[in-house]
Amino acid sequence: MDKETRELKVTAIENGTVIDHIPANNVFKVIRILNLENNNHQVLFGDNLDSEKYGKKGIIKVSNTFFAPDEINKIALVAPTATLIVIRNFKVVEKTKVEVPDEIIKIVKCFNPGCITNHENITTRFKVIDKAEMKLKCHYCEKSIARNNIIFA
């Protein structure tokens, strides 16, 4: 299968954003984090697609939507390898990698059942204390959370 046919598995978009190289099986998490379920524009996605670099990957294409860096960096928790491609007039105009933010707000739930955030209506906040290991520390209960204990709100 040539490269063009492979890319056409998910239709090209005229204007918008492509999030490529999402780890396979994390596409739905990215959709949730970016709140794409409530987006009124066209959203196309594919999962478990062949990738030369990663073996399997996911991809999301969102028409007429452009993300601010703060917004897109939230997906670094589930898709640290993702590439962000801005498309205008079917052409790639910008290509960047997601960056792990210093702080994660709202999208993660504290795994400590005794944490006040699990008992009152509080927007959660976590400091990223180790970007490589993706280790978080709850702003409220001060417990650190390893990558495999991260729970999405």
């Binding site: 944490c115 006040i116 702003h139 209960c141």
Partner: peptide, 10 residues
């Protein structure tokens, strides 16, 4: 004093 962790910060 509160039994929940993080209560004082909140």
């Amino acid at each position: 004093r509160h039994p929940r962790e993080g209560a004082a910060r909140w």
